[in-house]
Design a protein around this nucleic acid. Structure first.
Length: 875
RNA sequence: GGGCGCAUAGCUCAGUUGGUUAGAGCGCUACAUUCACAUUGUAGAGGCCAUAGGUUCAAAUCCUAUUGCGCCCACCA
């Protein structure tokens, strides 16, 4: 039978096969069930333009582990999948694609362009979904949603109307972040601030009625064309007398006044600031306060407009250079200082955004933030790791209104209509037949669409199509996401859910780290440092990808990746594969029927069997504990360590010589079968493949239940006894290695001397195992054994091991070594004695700790005695 | 300017409420191949837990300060 199974695990042979099997048998589907409790995760919907990257791989592996684990634990587990229409990103992609035909979206017109986007979506939009399937994701695919689905769009419109009617949505002219490349407004969150090395330019503005100047400092000289005042601090002695004076704005020759405002920082620059109310948020506030003129000097594409006079049609940065040249020529550029500044960048195309005055739609956020703050403060929603709570609260408490209108075509069109006759806006879920005010029939819809996040914030509930499902699965259980979108998405979902559902969207938020390359840089296409998960799947297998990723992801820490990391996962899969091959060599279908607990209770199991059972359940217990705390790496490492180093390295090696023994067969089979179930959420494919080859009940490991912890099988005493045996074996191997007697040891007799009869009986019983694993032909165990001259000896707490090697061993060297050990033991003993003589320690430390220290002291004494005895024997 | 994270073996990192001898993976050294697995096994070397104070019977772990690196937020032109 074993010959049929290849020596190396080949993931390609099995992964697609089992995924198809699961999907075809609808093993991922979840339905409301009276007898089961729900467990639900909504996927952070990837963009339709998305291609799987390591961030997705990590994010979805975590979700799949949780879902598969809870499913096996008996919950009705729903993982709700879907994609996001990603307004700007998708529009950009399609614009690029039609550019190949030399077309701009304006050439096609709105309807035709949107048609093209839909076509693009049909063709490429499910790429990411196929990739998520490659990853093994057990989403309920029949529920696949898209943020522009009919029902979902309906929900978006309803929500808009709801907020408008509550007075929480308004329209107005404000300074917003404008991306000149995408030509749309952005929210504050969509303008990512980055520090740039720029200059601070000192410009001279002449007075109207004298030859004097006032000097202003600016980082964006091109905006001077829109200046409508210069402001100084009223307390500033230098400028006090100048307040109210008129200046001639250079290059444009507009008369502007010097105004006073305490907002001005006297220490910065020259202490006088140019005021451009249409191009800077601070200046905008000053403009409002002092009733200044708002002059917009820029086209939406970032070129200067007609109000910029001679500079019209120049790009903003080109205009900057020309303006500086011109000012210099006129002697109006006083000086230039290097200056670090931070500027917003469009999060989609990375263009520097322009603070731009325009009419937009906004959501008043303060009233929505209140309940969202409460829910987290009261612990109804918990962040893992905890520290994100603070980040969330800090943002929530300083929340600004949300600009939700976008000047693009792809997205949810704003449900506001206008009457051409009387200009009356009508906010409505559907297009009204006529104007409510003048009954006019000429009605048109607002041209703008909504921010993509204005639809994603409804994701935890708008994805449910019927009340029954909503009632059963909502609120969802856990949200798994990356820190980058706490503000964009997590915070807003909490606000939306509390507002529209009067209920939290999820109980736990698990924030995992960002995936970086080995140098700590964020993985990105432009840096060319991407490790493609699909390449890894191809080379190492999905299970290897998942396991390696998860085992290096400490809670909330960023993940540093290199390709070699995935070898660990691949090797583990291979180890599992080969251990299973070995176990499958002894196929006996009847083992499946043996009741493990019953067998255990009969009390005739060997120490080795009792030990591995105890270790299995101890491990299971820790794995569960860590999974519940979202400590996935810890859980993965426990599973790895148990299987490789305890089950394979020790257990299988120990029972190998007695493989036909009934008990050994049962235990070996049972542990493997249960272990596969524990490993299944981490490595779904290989565990299914092996499980199917083992004698099993049921059609898929996915449907089997998570092993139940058998507390009475966990036995620390047994574990300690076994550790002692392992220590003896390791010591003998060590001696052999030290003597370089790898082959020669077989003929020699190894003698173990124990302190007492009980110990001796215990060791003696296990001597066949020791002989076996050390490849010894002769081993004798005695109560007290006098060392003979010329023997090679090693001391092990309360026993010593001797190998007679007359003439081969340098006795002086041995004594020297033992002396060193004696010294160390004596020092340890001394510090332990001091510790136990310390009254404060005895008084303050817990009893168990004191007890432990006492035991340790005794064992040190024992060891010292042994060491001295051995030393004397050698002489 | 504010906030957060990190500093532990040659490298990449674990170390959960303070309590045995600080762990893993990779790398390194030596040995082992008719044995389920060389994607392996056995053994080994390698640590002043960033620095300086403090709290405590007890500190890698808690507190304070310092240094270095990274991230996030913020309207100083």
């Amino acid at each position: 039978m074993i010959d049929e199974i290849p020596k190396q695990y080949n993931p390609k042979d099995v992964e697609d096969k089992w995924y198809k099997f699961w999907e075809e048998n609808k093993l991922f589907s979840a339905k409301p069930s009276i007898s089961k409790k729900p467990f639900c995760i909504v996927i952070p919907p990837p963009n339709v333009t998305g291609i799987l990257h390591m961030g997705h791989a990590l994010n979805n592996t975590i979700q799949d582990i949780l879902i598969r684990y809870q499913r096996m634990k008996g919950f009705e587990a729903l993982w709700m999948p879907g994609t996001d229409h990603a307004g700007i990103a998708t529009q950009n992609v399609v614009e690029k694609s039609i550019a190949k035909e030399n077309l701009k979206r304006q050439d096609l017109g709105r309807d035709k362009f949107i048609q093209r986007v839909w076509e693009w979506k049909e063709q490429y939009g499910s790429t990411i979904i196929h990739q998520l399937k490659k990853l093994g994701s057990s989403c309920d695919w029949q529920r696949l949603r898209f943020t522009m689905d009919k029902e979902y769009s309906q929900a978006v419109r309803e929500v808009f109307v709801w907020l408008y009617e509550k007075g929480l949505i308004y329209r107005g002219s404000y300074i917003i972040n404008w991306c000149p490349r995408c030509q749309t407004a952005l929210s504050d969150e969509e303008a990512a601030h980055r520090t740039l090395q720029g200059n601070l330019y000192y410009l001279k503005y002449p007075f109207k009625d004298s030859k004097e100047f006032i000097v202003v400092a600016t980082t964006r000289p091109e905006t001077m064309l829109g200046d409508t005042a210069v402001a100084v601090n009223p307390k500033d002695k230098r400028y006090k007398k100048l307040i109210g004076k008129t200046l001639i704005l250079p290059l444009v020759n507009r008369q502007i006044k010097i105004i006073a405002d305490s907002m001005v920082d006297m220490k910065f620059g020259s202490g006088a600031v140019k005021v451009t109310p249409a191009h800077d948020p601070n200046d905008y506030a000053l403009g409002k306060k002092h009733n200044l003129e708002f002059i917009n000097v820029m086209h939406p594409d970032g070129r200067m407009n007609t109000l910029a006079g001679d500079y019209r049609d120049m790009d903003r940065f080109e205009a900057r250079e020309v303006i500086l040249e011109d000012l210099k020529e006129q002697g109006l550029l006083q000086k230039v200082e290097p200056h670090q500044l931070s500027a917003g960048h469009c999060y989609r195309c990375h263009t520097i955004v322009e603070p731009y005055l325009s009419e937009q739609w906004f959501v008043k956020m303060k009233p929505l933030a209140g309940p969202a703050i409460e829910a987290v403060k009261k612990g109804k929603i918990k962040f893992y790791p905890k520290r994100w709570t603070k980040v969330y609260l800090n943002w929530m408490e300083n929340i600004q209104d949300w600009c939700i209108s976008r000047q693009i075509w792809w997205g949810h069109r704003i449900p506001v209509y206008y009457c051409r006759k009387c200009n009356e806006p009508i906010v409505s879920k559907a297009k009204p037949a006529s104007c409510l005010k003048c009954k006019g029939q000429d009605i048109y819809q607002d041209e703008d669409v909504l921010d993509t996040w204005f639809s994603s914030w409804l994701w935890p509930f708008a994805t449910f199509k019927n009340q029954e499902d909503l009632k059963y699965f909502y609120p969802t259980s856990t949200l798994v996401t990356a820190p980058e979108i706490i503000f964009f998405w997590v915070a807003r979902m909490i606000m939306a859910s509390l507002e529209f559902m009067r209920e939290i969207p999820f109980k736990d938020v698990y924030i995992h780290g960002t995936v970086r390359d080995i140098e700590g840089k964020k993985m990105s296409k432009s840096l060319g440092n991407i490790i493609d998960p699909l390449d890894i799947i191809n080379e190492y297998g999905t299970d290897a990808l998942r396991f390696s990723l998860i085992s290096i992801t400490a809670q909330g820490q960023d993940v540093y990746l290199s390709k070699e990391r995935f070898e660990q996962g691949r090797n583990f899969a291979n180890k599992l594969w080969n251990a299973s091959r070995f176990i499958l060599m002894n196929p006996d279908a009847s083992v499946i029927k043996t009741d493990l607990c019953l067998l255990f209770k009969k009390d005739d199991l060997s120490l080795v069997n009792r030990w591995i059972l105890s270790r299995f359940y101890s491990t299971l217990k820790s794995v569960e504990k860590n999974l519940e705390k979202y400590q996935f790496n810890e859980a993965a490492n426990l599973v790895y360590g148990f299987f490789w180093h305890e089950f394979c390295d020790w257990y299988l090696e120990l029972i190998k010589s007695n493989i036909t023994d009934r008990h050994n067969q049962v235990v070996m089979y049972k542990i493997l079968e249960k272990f596969l179930r524990v490993l299944h959420p981490f490595m779904p494919f290989i565990t299914e493949e092996i499980w199917q080859k083992l004698p099993h009940e049921g059609s898929s490991i996915m449907l089997s239940s998570w092993p139940h912890i058998q507390e009475d099988i966990i036995d620390k005493k047994i574990e300690n006894q076994m550790n002692e045996v392992c220590e003896i074996i390791t010591t003998i191997r060590n001696m052999r290695s030290e003597l370089d007697l790898t082959s020669g040891l077989n003929n020699l007799e190894v003698k173990i001397s124990c302190v007492n009869k009980i110990k001796r009986a215990f060791i003696e019983a296990l001597s066949p195992d020791i002989k076996n694993l050390c490849r010894l032909s002769r081993l004798s165990v005695k109560d007290e054994y006098r060392i003979l001259k010329g023997e090679f000896v090693n001391v092990l707490k309360d026993m010593h091991i001797a190998i007679p090697l007359q003439g081969v061993i340098d006795i002086e060297k041995q004594i020297e070594k033992i002396n060193l050990k004696v010294q160390k033991t004596e020092a340890d003993l001394k510090s332990k004695q001091a510790m136990l003589a310390n009254k404060n320690f005895l008084k303050n430390a817990p009893v168990e700790i004191v007890e432990k220290e006492r035991e340790k002291l005794n064992s040190l004494k024992e060891e010292l005695k042994k060491l001295k005895g051995v030393k004397n024997g050698l002489r």
